[in-house]
Design a protein around this nucleic acid. Structure first.
Lengths: 254, 254
DNA sequence: TAGTGGTCTAGACCACATG
DNA sequence: ATGTGGTCTAGACCACTAC
């Protein structure tokens, strides 16, 4: 073979054309588009490396590098001998993928869920801004309580774009076994890819204290999470208050 | 070429021999040993991929994969056209690598440091256990205060194994400009590679409140960090209390 | 111009999963 | 036995850095 890279899209060069990207980056983008478009659903397998190589007219190694990065980003999961699969929040066995709360020695994880409320309303200004909604657009607010062995641990307020979550009701939520994000995937086609959290220490107000069964003024962990789907589109704003008496938030630095 | 993998160490098979590991994993381990042994110091460049390939008698691609992983782990840094360098806590320009504290809109990062104390004493039981010291072994305790624009934000208690940090004094610390971890690297040859943090919300006690200039009982973020060097050896236990009025702890999930 | 890391290819063989 | 991902090689060329 004489020359190497043959861009999938010819130059075309419209206006402020960004510099050329490596072939495997282009492949990566194409794969993301297919994921986004629902060509392969969560949990399903994508075509084999050789098939994709044939489809895109590149070598297996190039497809491989693209898939490697998508796997590192958590969008795909490789399983030797079986294939490559679309990552899902289902079957994140043992641990809920985004939940960093770990029980203290002797305690147990907060797995009991109780949905307190689920209503549609117009997004408050700050929520609208964060979720990139037009002001006054509809939003869904879910309030729920997570407990461990009967003791409440987390009080969550979850804001979702109304347009994406049309039929979300208390019944749907309470009837669901398994991670909430799995419901979002299967029922609403919204896959959470990554998220950013901002953590602060705050004092429990009267209402919160009641829900969490602590004294007003008790220090709580405030965890504000913005979750994004493909294309970094924000699709969930979650405000959690954690009682860290029997649990802690764990993090790894490198 | 007929066959591919030729393990660097012949089978030898002593007792409960672990399964063979891929060549690039073995290379990776060898590189870590060289880093650990100080063959290449932080900030220096390591030999080129071709040199290493020759040294280890493997192809460039195999060395490359080993280096890729070490770079992903944050042990090495690649610079196109220049070479591959040993990562360092110096020149982590702008942001201190492990510090996740971010100023709120309008506030500024906590860059002013004040060393309150630095003393050698026998490690308390819990510290000794965490740092894997023999009970009663010497430890160094550093207490310091980080401030932003004159307002205290973080109160840190830092425990270090006495054996590794022999000449650490208040003068050395206060005289040092730049990240503390950089001092540890250059003066004591201890490189922090990764760390785990446990985060809780706690109420300020009287003494802490005074240092942080808040009312007693104010909710604070308790951040307990265990830092490790090569071989996952624990070398620092840091207990920080953060005032999150003007700052927050940021985290990314994926 | 020479040296470095970065991309790409083509083909071999290995390890694992399944029928 | 076949198909999948995982490892390894050898060699080409590109992009960036330095002298």
């Amino acid at each position: 073979m004489s020359s190497a890279a043959q861009p999938i899209e010819p130059p075309a060069d419209a206006g402020a054309a960004p510099a050329f990207s490596p072939l495997y980056q282009q492949i990566k983008a194409l794969l993301v588009r297919s994921l986004q478009g629902g060509e392969w659903k969560p949990g399903e397998s994508i075509p084999s490396e050789l098939e994709l190589a044939a489809r895109f007219k590149v070598s297996q190694g190039t497809v491989r590098k693209a898939i490697d990065e998508l796997a590192a980003d958590g969008l795909l999961v490789r399983k030797q001998g079986k294939g490559t699969f679309v990552a899902t929040h289902a079957e994140e066995h043992v641990q809920y993928r985004f939940l960093r709360l770990t029980p203290e020695e002797g305690a147990s994880p907060p797995v009991e869920r109780r949905v307190l409320d689920c209503r549609r309303l117009r997004a408050p200004a700050d929520v609208a801004r964060t979720l990139e909604l037009k002001s006054g657009e509809a939003a869904v607010l879910v309030r729920r309580l997570l407990s461990a062995q009967g003791k409440p641990v987390v009080l969550d307020d979850i804001w979702l774009p109304g347009a994406l979550f049309k039929g979300l009701t208390v019944e749907k939520l309470t009837g669901w076994r398994g991670p909430m994000y799995e419901l979002f995937e299967s029922e609403f086609g919204v896959r959470m890819i990554r998220a950013e959290e901002q953590i602060r220490a705050v004092a429990a107000d009267a209402a919160t204290a009641q829900w969490l069964e602590v004294a007003a003024g008790t220090p709580l962990l405030s965890v504000e999470r913005l979750s994004r789907t493909y294309g970094d589109k924000p699709v969930e704003l979650r405000r959690g208050l954690y009682n860290t008496a029997q649990h802690h938030y764990r993090n790894e630095l490198s």
